[in-house]
Amino acid sequence: MATDAALRRLLRLHRTEIAVAVDSAFPLLHALADHDVVPEDKFQETLHLKEKEGCPQAFHALLSWLLTQDSTAILDFWRVLFKDYNLERYGRLQPILDSFPKDVDLSQPRKGRKPPAVPKALVPPPRLPTKRKASEEARAAAPAALTPRGTASPGSQLKAKPPKKPESSAEQQRLPLGNGIQTMSASVQRAVAMSSGDVPGARGAVEGILIQQVFESGGSKKCIQVGGEFYTPSKFEDSGSGKNKARSSSGPKPLVRAKGAQGAAPGGGEARLGQQGSVPAPLALPSDPQLHQKNEDECAVCRDGGELICCDGCPRAFHLACLSPPLREIPSGTWRCSSCLQATVQEVQPRAEEPRPQEPPVETPLPPGLRSAGEEVRGPPGEPLAGMDTTLVYKHLPAPPSAAPLPGLDSSALHPLLCVGPEGQQNLAPGARCGVCGDGTDVLRCTHCAAAFHWRCHFPAGTSRPGTGLRCRSCSGDVTPAPVEGVLAPSPARLAPGPAKDDTASHEPALH
């Protein structure tokens, strides 16, 4: 009773807030009518008042009428009001819900409408889902798969039609296919003929059939049928067999079959498995989609049935006599038709004709302190090069084509190399640097090759510096006499390219 009084008091307290929050009759008014909170006449009256005075006034009048009803109607109103779709449509209802007392429970059932309790003993237990329907569909599909699609060729003596089998029958139906081979029951999904010589313990000319048996419980189990008994694959494991010639990621696949039913060829011909030897223990289905393919039931050349050999690369099948050149017997292992072999060759040939990528240039590290003349020119003028003790990398590039010797140069053309002071002394051009340390401070000019250098860098042994005729380390061993002091540049003949010694390969005349 306390809860009923509290709900009535809360409705009177929030009546105006609810009326202002509800700006549309749908969905709240319609939901109240659906849950029998508002009768039909009051529903029509509220809609009429909404058209006349507006939605807030109409709902305020409806809530005032609701306060005169019993506690069950008020409880049902609060339940409908706080439904998710009403809270989404009328956003101003959320503060009312947040301020609702926590001790007021809106989930209690309506009085007088409590459903009768059902004894637990009368409640049926839930049924577990079964796979009976899938099993029945598999039974119905198996006879259809064994139905012949056409008439065999005159040369083929193997013609068999499976008798119709009602689904209610649980007995196995067997077809006489000759040579002791028996087909599987209607619940078998796949059958492959297997030679009895590969099964340990088999006697006589009995041949087993590799099947997948579907049981009534819905589970499946792969086994071997020899005669009327089934054997699990673990009985046929043979770890010492060295003649297993397995197909790549293979499961067994029928390579020879008669049109209309699988079996042995007439005249004692023995149908073979995809792999010879003992049956392997793992009978998992292969991951290669080509091995799941269903080959055609007629020859791809003459479009006739009979004894066919199936290609492992495509769905086509052929007569042995229709092949070019014809085959006398079934080859062992994987067999592919000429079209598949030709496609494989065409895929391999473009790969062989692809040009080989060019090898990157060989990189040879230079000892610290040495650099090529090109690196000396590329440096920024007026700045010493940083990191001189790091190992430089010199790339061996292809030799350029031989060019004509340089033409003779006048001494005026070499004027930018040297600057003559007032006393006739050779001065260095701006930006000249030593080729060893890279520093341009207090550098000297070689009178023979006009290269800038430090005496301490080229002659670290402490050799005394002569007063005139300074030469760098590369030119100090040259027998050519030094030019007379005061000459602007060496003779043009000295600039012609010539053979250089091994220790002077990195010091070429550089223009500054």
Rank of each mutant, 00 (worst) to 15 (best):
L67D: 06
H35T: 01
K120S: 13
S239N: 14
P39M: 01
V20C: 00
G218S: 07
P163E: 02
K259A: 13
S195M: 03
D70Y: 00
R113N: 15
G251Y: 14
P148I: 15
A134Y: 09
F230P: 03
G180A: 13
K164R: 15
P143Q: 14
I211L: 04
K259N: 10
H48Y: 13
L10G: 01
A202H: 10
R15Q: 04
G240F: 09
P56R: 03
Q225K: 13
L177S: 05
Y231T: 04
Q225R: 09
A61L: 01
V22R: 05
A121Y: 15
S249E: 01
L49Y: 03
S156Y: 08
T147H: 13
L10I: 03
L273F: 09
E270D: 14
E207A: 01
S249L: 06
E207W: 00
V256R: 03
A58C: 01
S153W: 14
F26G: 00
K159G: 08
S239C: 12
P126N: 02
A170I: 07
A246C: 13
K42C: 01
R89Q: 04
Q44W: 03
L210I: 09
Y231D: 06
P154E: 04
S153C: 13
H60R: 02
V199D: 08
S249W: 15
V226R: 05
G263I: 00
L32I: 00
T151N: 09
Q213E: 06
Q182R: 14
R149T: 05
V37I: 03
V37G: 02
G178S: 13
G54V: 04
R132W: 05
W65T: 10
K259L: 09
I96E: 02
D70C: 03
L122A: 07
K50H: 04
T72N: 12
R149V: 05
V20D: 02
E53P: 00
G260F: 09
A6D: 10
G204W: 02
S217H: 11
S156P: 04
K111T: 09
G267D: 05
A6M: 04
P126E: 07
L210R: 04
R127K: 07
Q44I: 09
D41V: 02
R12Y: 01
E88T: 15
G268A: 10
A5H: 05
V188C: 08
G227C: 08
N86V: 14
K131I: 01
P115C: 09
G155Q: 01
Q212L: 01
A117G: 13
T232W: 04
S239H: 13
S64A: 01
G251L: 13
A58K: 00
D198T: 15
A261Q: 12
K253N: 07
K159M: 07
S250C: 13
L122Y: 15
G208K: 08
R113Y: 08
A202P: 08
A191D: 09
L273D: 04
S99K: 15
A191T: 13
D84K: 01
A141H: 12
